[in-house]
Every structure is written in structure tokens, then in C-alpha cells.
Design a protein around this nucleic acid. Structure first.
Length: 163
DNA sequence: GCCAACGTTGGC
DNA sequence: GCCAACGTTGGC
């Protein structure tokens, strides 16, 4: 009996780290560092498994939205940038013997044929309940239901834009 | 650049 | 434990 995978959404500011940056990494794989929010961390720690899939979401940019798909290839482990005083993610309160912050490794899978903007998500009733659509939602890692996952792909593949 | 929403900090 | 102040996120 095969276990079903979990689906996620992971935000990144493209000016800082875009899906193209991930795609240009060796093996198209990189660690997802800099998560400094307990709820997002807990999703990584308690929910993410190898083989899970996640939408790559571009935030704080001209057209925020879902641009591609990545695969979780390594489960949560300590985020070493928290121990590095030169890192902008340095957190003196994260003890190397008891790390406060974690990260996972992700591998680039593909871009969506057509990005699905936040405005488009909000325009679809079956997608507008997604957490990323909620006003003031600052969570950078969140679960996505199988229905929402399929719905986003359907919207991406369908012709034309929803305004 | 503005600013609302949110999470965290710290005084009490 | 409360809550005001603060810093950050992120859409617009």
C-alpha cells in the first residue's frame, strides 16, 4: 500500500531567491534556509516528508503567485545560518546543541506552464480559501490540500487568464 | 513607498 | 500573564 504524499506551498522573494535560482543549483537542489517562524518550522519538522511536493511561490514582487513545483528531498535538519554571525538569518538564541531553526532540502521539478497569480487564486472559489489568499497571511510555509493542488494545476493548464 | 496585519519582545 | 511597542511581511 503506497502512502499518499503531502502538498505544500513555500514562499520566496524572487529578488532574494527565485525558482530560477533553484533551477541553476547543482542537481537543481538546495536547502531552504532562513525560516524564522515557529509555525512554518513546525510544518517542516512535523509534516514534511521526503517525496512531498510543494508549490514555489514568489512573494513581494510585481506579480505574486505560484510559479513552479519543487520536491522535498531531505527532511528537516538544523538551519546552520542561525549560527553564523555574518548571516542575515543569524539568531544568537539558536543553540547549536539545541537548534531552534530547521530547514529542508528541495529539488526543482518544473515551472508551471502558466504561473498562477495570487489574483487568479483569489478569483477561483475553490482556491480562494487557501491560506496564502487570506489577508495579512504571512506564513511562509503552509499545507495545501490535494484538491487545491489539483485545482491550481488545472488553472495553470487551462487556456486564457482569469481576471 | 505605504501601511495593514501579524508575530515577538519586554516592562510591569 | 497582559498588552503596548516594535520589527517584519508582503500586497498594493
Amino acid at each position: 500500500m503506497s502512502k499518499s504524499i503531502n502538498y505544500w506551498l513555500m514562499k520566496s522573494e524572487p529578488d532574494t531567491y527565485s525558482i530560477d535560482d533553484l533551477a541553476s543549483q547543482p542537481k537543481k537542489t538546495d536547502h531552504w534556509d532562513g525560516i524564522r517562524n515557529y509555525q512554518a518550522r513546525n510544518y517542516m519538522r512535523d509534516g514534511m516528508r521526503k517525496g512531498d511536493l510543494a508549490f514555489f511561490y514568489h512573494s513581494n514582487c510585481e506579480e505574486p503567485g505560484i510559479v513552479g513545483i519543487v520536491e522535498i528531498v531531505r527532511t528537516a535538519y538544523p538551519d546552520h545560518t542561525a549560527f553564523d554571525p555574518d548571516s542575515k538569518y543569524f539568531d544568537p538564541k539558536s543553540d547549536p546543541d539545541n537548534p531552534r531553526w530547521l530547514m529542508v532540502d528541495v529539488r526543482y521539478r518544473r515551472k508551471l506552464r502558466r504561473p498562477v497569480s495570487l489574483a487568479t487564486l483569489k478569483a477561483h472559489p475553490e482556491l480562494s480559501a487557501m491560506r496564502v489568499c487570506q489577508k495579512g497571511s504571512r506564513l511562509s510555509i503552509m499545507p495545501v490540500t490535494a484538491e487545491e493542488w489539483a485545482g491550481v494545476l488545472t488553472v495553470s493548464e487551462s487556456a486564457g487568464r482569469v481576471e
